[in-house]
Design a protein around this nucleic acid. Structure first.
Lengths: 295, 295
DNA sequence: TCAATAATATACTCATGGTCTAAAAAATGC
DNA sequence: GCATTTTTTAGACCATGAGTATATTATTGA
């Protein structure tokens, strides 16, 4: 990412938060960033594209934080899940992401619309996978339903809370929603009353839920793939070490964890590619899952 | 309501549905309605005010339908409740009402924003009152929470269903949400785990939940109040009869019901005042409640 | 140093919401 | 049926804001 581009994104980011997307004109951004119109349109085809760029960045950052939260904790710790949700909420709320989702149908702009839908669906899928982590594979069939229910309760609770000017902290709403979920899970699990069948979750993501072995293989493949691209010396070294370590009978999990942390730091500096982030995510999942299996 | 005004509203209504609010320009409305700009701005201060007018009309119509649904059925019939919800859903979805709610924070326009919030809060309150009808006064303390949860699940279920292009009928989503609610109610009722205290419901509405006696008194007062305004001969006659009947020891419920129906028909023709509609609503509630008490 | 690239300043188009005015058309009261 | 008032029209006009285009001035990298 270019320096000027980053500058524009930062300013736009700030202004969108302060005044809202609709209320911020491109001129405002130009003035605040002290750049010419041409520069803006050199980097972004439109205001909407600029928003998408910001949203992608924000998502990456919160994904990172979510992964960090997972390390060193049990995968089935509800408290960790609550924190992970809160992280996204903080930024989501600032951006009124939910508002944007639904304005989709208002917009002519198909780009932004589909982007929003994809982002939301990926969040729903993430939640359903985490619910399986927490409540076990037995709820697999109803996990999507539960994710939809959980996010629905959460979103509406926050919305009404805001409307009624009761400003309880986000996390209180998260925990409330989570508490409500439990009796539903018990009931729905018994009755097998499913609305959204699990097969709606894309296959490659579903595979992540499988065994450590499969996960190891995926990570190794990813590493090899990334090695074929241009990498710094440090990365090459770390990647090759990881591949070797993962191929061992009993990979030393604490060493892998520490490398993961290093890579995560590096990713923070430069805007990491999707594949790089996928690696980080899979790696952190591998770590937590391995720890769990050890128990 | 003026004839020209109605014409404008109808055209705007149609266009908003076809192309969406944001995508419909005032010029579009003018062209379609074959009107001059001045005429539009004679009746509506702005595009937003026009939307509000439409929304008010739509709400009135669906309130009416909801009331009609209640007559002749038990107040605690879940099926009736599901139908009542579906009614509003049909129109809400057309208008992307939920989208508008949330865009509130995008808008500079405070008017439209507060209007939306009020409309939504009144819906939440209505649902919580109906839940009390259905599950009994014992759940009074948790009724608001339940309404928030129910609407949250419902809204998100519909949203995800739309995004995933599974087009199940609205009513299926309503029944799904309602089924999920039951175990929550059981659990929450035992644990008294309340987030939104009942006192958030405005007092005058809360009173409606009280006894038939109180309700009778309220209806009589409303009738007297309305009689002091200008009324047609027919209305005066019906109103005075109702007052007399309600004061009797055992009001003949079927007669009252038939008068209610007549008044409802009349209200459909001319745009009824808020007070008139309140009367209709209270009356229908009186009828159903009385029937229930008889059991 | 020179050529390519990045950045600036500024003028322009176009769509849209909203205001204003003068004249034509309708409605209304006597 | 005529005069007055109200409604409606047509269209000019303004402001704002997104996005395009262009000519000019840095910056930079080989």
């Amino acid at each position: 990412m270019n320096k000027k581009q980053k500058q524009i994104i930062d300013v736009a980011h700030k202004l969108f938060l302060e005044k809202g997307f609709g209320q911020t004109s491109i001129q405002d951004i130009l003035d605040e960033a002290k750049i010419a119109k041409g520069t803006f349109y050199k980097y972004f085809k439109s205001k909407n594209e600029c928003l998408i760029a910001i949203l992608e960045l924000v998502k990456q950052e919160s994904d990172q934080k979510r992964n960090e939260l997972l390390i060193g904790n049990r995968i089935d710790d509800e408290e960790v899940f609550a924190d992970q949700i809160s992280i996204r909420l903080a930024t989501d709320k600032e951006y009124n992401i939910l508002a944007l989702f639904l304005t989709t149908s208002f917009m002519t702009d198909r780009e932004l619309g589909t982007f929003m839908v994809n982002m939301h669906m990926s969040e729903v899928h993430w939640v359903s996978r985490r619910l399986i982590d927490i409540y076990g594979g037995e709820i697999k069939e109803i996990a999507l339903d539960q994710a939809v229910i959980f996010l629905g309760i959460l979103q509406h609770t926050l919305q009404v809370g805001k409307m009624a000017s009761l400003d309880f902290p986000d996390k209180k709403a998260v925990q409330f929603a989570l508490r409500q979920l439990k009796p539903i899970i018990r009931e729905q699990y018994q009755k097998k009353d499913v609305l959204f069948p699990i097969h709606l979750i894309p296959f490659d993501e579903e595979d992540e839920l499988e065994t450590v072995q499969q996960l190891t293989e995926q990570v190794v493949n990813l590493l090899k793939k990334l090695l074929q691209q241009e990498r710094t010396m440090e990365e090459t070294e770390l990647f090759e070490f990881l591949i070797a370590e993962l191929k061992m009978e009993k990979p030393r999990i604490l060493i892998i964890e520490s490398i993961w942390r290093t890579l995560g730091q590096a990713a923070k500096q430069t805007k990491a590619t999707d594949e790089y982030n996928e690696l980080l995510q899979k790696l952190s999942y591998f770590i937590t899952l391995t720890k769990k299996v050890k128990d």
